[in-house]
Nucleic acid binder design. Structure first.
Lengths: 182, 182
DNA sequence: CCGCCCATGTAATCAGTTACATGATTTT
DNA sequence: AAAATCATGTAACTGATTACATGGGCGG
């Protein structure tokens, strides 16, 4: 999947691994995360497969910036993937629910404390996403002007993140209220 | 994480890898999935580490049932984990959002079709969870009678699954409605 | 006798995570 | 002068996925 995120961004303009990492932190963090170690190795792999080409920029500064450019084969591969719909849902992994499931073995106070802490974390996430909605997206449109007509799709993913966190908070509040009523 | 799910279930009673696989399919599928290959190797690892012991049952049938039993060290390890709250949220990975993000490159019809298909899949999930809520949980309480007081916690995780799918459907419907209005 | 469920494993590969490692430039 | 950010990589390990591989029991 990371492969297609990288190709998707390189479709807009040539970039370095560092650029891709930072653009992902701003725009895909609410649905996909990758470590820089993963990005650099994935880019090398894409180059081996002929889907991107790279050049070390010899500019005025001595920084070793390796700029990646998508190839025709890369564009085709990306579009082929985009036009082949997913036919099944990936398995869910929700860490915290594992703990909830077995929390009958804990003291109610410890469980309540953990719920409240989770609430804080998700509240922070929600605020972060709302902040992006308000400010970062215009920044991204500036950065990729040729892709401004794609902004509505970026917004859809962000709305998902916001609705997810709102749902999470509601769920947590429901449990907290039930426990406190006892 | 799988490690603690296995220890958590073995805490109720001794079981085989096959049992654990099937109990997970009935009760943790909405927040954790594991392949049988993963479960069998994880159990061997737990035995190596002294957290479980195993015995091949030589019953009347010739089936090679390897029954795992949690050890004292295993119980301690499990409780230590349970009492150490998570302090940060794991990275989100939502496959479908990657596709939405880049769907500006597709025809609106193709995108709509994929949204409708996703809707079906999530509708199925939702119905499945509601079915479990209505029937399966009583079955699980029967199977682990000594754990009946933990049923409310299992219900909490199931409510999460239901609320998640409801949120997903709402989000999809919002997008579908917006696109159709054009 | 065919298909399904019970039952257990290994091997190969791919993806994700943490740690190690280095060095320049820019901002405070 | 120190800290933050820019910039790139490798290595080791852990976890997840797919495929391979085998064989018994049971019901139609």
């Amino acid at each position: 999947m990371l492969k297609y995120i990288l190709l998707g961004f390189l479709n807009y303009c040539p970039m370095t691994g560092y650029d891709l990492k930072s653009v992902m932190e701003r725009s895909t963090l609410h649905f996909w995360h990758a470590y820089h170690s993963q990005i650099y190795t994935a880019l090398r792999k894409l180059e081996e497969d002929g889907l991107v080409t790279s050049l070390v920029q010899d500019g005025e500064d001595a920084l070793n910036r390796r700029v990646y450019t998508i190839s025709e084969a890369g564009r085709e591969d990306f579009l082929r993937w985009l036009n082949a719909p997913l036919t099944e849902l990936p398995p869910v992994k929700e860490n915290f629910l594992v703990r909830v499931f077995f929390s009958g073995k804990r003291s109610p106070e410890d469980f309540l404390n953990e719920l409240r802490f989770q609430r804080q974390l998700h509240q922070q996430n929600l605020e972060h996403y709302k902040h992006i909605e308000a400010e970062e997206f215009s920044h991204k449109v500036e950065k990729f002007p040729e892709a401004y007509q794609e902004a509505p799709f970026w917004m859809m993913t962000l709305r998902f993140g916001i609705q997810f966190e709102e749902m999470y908070l509601q769920w947590l509040d429901g449990i907290i209220a039930t426990l406190q009523a006892k």
